[in-house]
């Protein structure tokens, strides 16, 4: 026992192996190994030469149409986006147009106000001038013009009242314009007489 413990491990195994009976494998084993190796070899060779299979020609058409329909969805989004853009642009233009109209109306109103103001200022100036007993104001021509101006003013006021009551008509508007023009011409004639 002591001798075995002191022996190196390797020598101990050799010693036991020498004593054991050697068994032989079946003769078939190597043949089977060889067959498997042959099969694996043949298999790997054939796998490299496997036939190629071709898809149906219609497959690409299906893929293409599917991609096309995806694109149509994009077009739909584009269409919606374009519609929104059109609505925004149209409303912006309409708002701008509305503001412009409002601005024009305001300007027109201001213009008419300023015309009336000018007219009133001119009349006020003529009256101030005549209050100093200038000889031109005593002339019959000047007095006729002043009377004509007062009549035109009265007629204009009467027409404006009729428009407020019954609404306007093209004829009434034309009459108003005519009176305005006559008033302006009358005032100009009066100013010319004063200045002469």
């Amino acid at each position: 026992m002591n001798t075995l413990q002191n022996m190196p491990q390797k020598n101990k195994n050799i010693d036991w192996n020498k004593r054991l009976y050697l068994h032989q494998p079946d003769e078939d084993v190597w043949r089977k190994i060889e067959e498997k190796l042959d099969f694996e070899s043949k298999l790997s060779n054939c796998l490299c030469e496997l036939p190629v299979h071709y898809p149906d020609l219609a497959t690409w058409e299906k893929i293409s149409s599917n991609l096309h329909s995806k694109k149509t969805i994009n077009f739909k989004y584009l269409y919606v986006a374009a519609s929104i853009a059109v609505v925004i642009i149209t409303s912006t233009i309409m708002v701008q147009q509305f503001r412009k109209d409002k601005y024009i109306a305001t300007i027109t109103q201001k213009h008419s106000i300023s015309e009336n103001d000018l007219e009133e200022a001119a009349i006020a100036e003529i009256q101030t001038y005549c209050s100093t007993q200038m000889p031109a104001c005593e002339e019959s021509r000047f007095k006729e013009l002043m009377q004509l101006y007062e009549e035109l003013k009265a007629e204009e006021a009467q027409l404006n009242r009729a428009i407020q009551q019954f609404g306007d008509s093209p004829e009434m508007i034309q009459s108003i314009v005519k009176i305005e023009n006559l008033k302006s011409a009358t005032l100009q004639d009066m100013i010319i007489l004063i200045q002469s």
């Binding site: 078939d28 067959e35 099969f39 043949k42 298999l43 054939c46 030469e49 496997l50 036939p51």
Partner: peptide
């Protein structure tokens, strides 16, 4: 056990 592996790539497929 198989004596011979004389198959083709088409047969393998």
């Amino acid at each position: 056990t198989l004596p011979d592996f004389n198959f083709t790539a088409i047969q393998l497929d």
